[in-house]
Design a protein around this nucleic acid. Sequence first.
DNA 1: TAACTAATGCGACTGTGTTGCAATAATGCA
DNA 2: TGCATTATTGCAACACAGTCGCATTAGTTA
Lengths: 126, 126
Amino acid sequence: MGVHRKTRNLELVLDAFRNTQEALSAHLLIERLPVDVNRSTVYRLLDRLEDDGVVHSFLASENIRFYALCKECNQSGHVHSHAHFQCTSCSQVVCLEQEVAVPTLNQYRVDEAQVLLKGQCATCMR
Amino acid sequence: MGVHRKTRNLELVLDAFRNTQEALSAHLLIERLPVDVNRSTVYRLLDRLEDDGVVHSFLASENIRFYALCKECNQSGHVHSHAHFQCTSCSQVVCLEQEVAVPTLNQYRVDEAQVLLKGQCATCMR
DNA sequence: TAACTAATGCGACTGTGTTGCAATAATGCA
DNA sequence: TGCATTATTGCAACACAGTCGCATTAGTTA
Ligand SMILES: [Mn+2]
Ligand SMILES: [Mn+2]
Ligand SMILES: [Zn+2]
Ligand SMILES: [Zn+2]
């Protein structure tokens, strides 16, 4: 898609994702950046990275979009249908290996299945 | 939970849900009420109805909470694990019969599975 | 009918995400 | 290296979902 100049902010954002197993909201991401980066800039970077198939995004609670690195996507389209998990105690979100089967329905053509599992993570269980 | 006085607004909200097969966002609901009802009031009514097991809610895109009547819930708790469908053309949202199986995971205790299917509804397909 | 208090409307607020615009900086090329 | 081009950035203002405190209104009960 868009041109990608190798800017400091872009590198910082990618580093943040590479340094964690978690999925990150824009807010969490900004907290973890070692320098201040403007909110708009972060959103724009995330949009661009998503267009380019570098990250994917999905909604978790409460009405917040989370982002994580893609494994096998590129600018020609996102191909994943894995589930996500959010801990109801610490709010941490992760991508799961679990592939999600897209079911067939009578009345509807289903293109996509979004699955968010909620419960407790290992850390919060003890 | 809370006391339920039989107010005009409460009746109007319940009627709106009874008169449709769709799930409704607060915004859609307000549009369909035959008289003006304040936004805060609508949100408070929806909260109360949800506490009482009369409606359930779930998130659809874009970051919007939808509400629909419950079939077998009451104030002692919500028991449903059905999927929801949202049409990507007309944005309409419906509850599906489809029960969702809550999977078991190694690292996490899963309490709940939220499934949102996206695609096209019958009307939008032709 | 009157007292009690739940429900309501209003305005202000929070938080996520978006946008127009002027300033800045990465890039490619002379 | 120096310069022109233009992508990227920061900022301020905005849109919109949802929440909250508070004064007013209106169900309910006696
Ligand atoms: Mn993921
Ligand atoms: Mn439902
Ligand atoms: Zn946790
Ligand atoms: Zn449709």
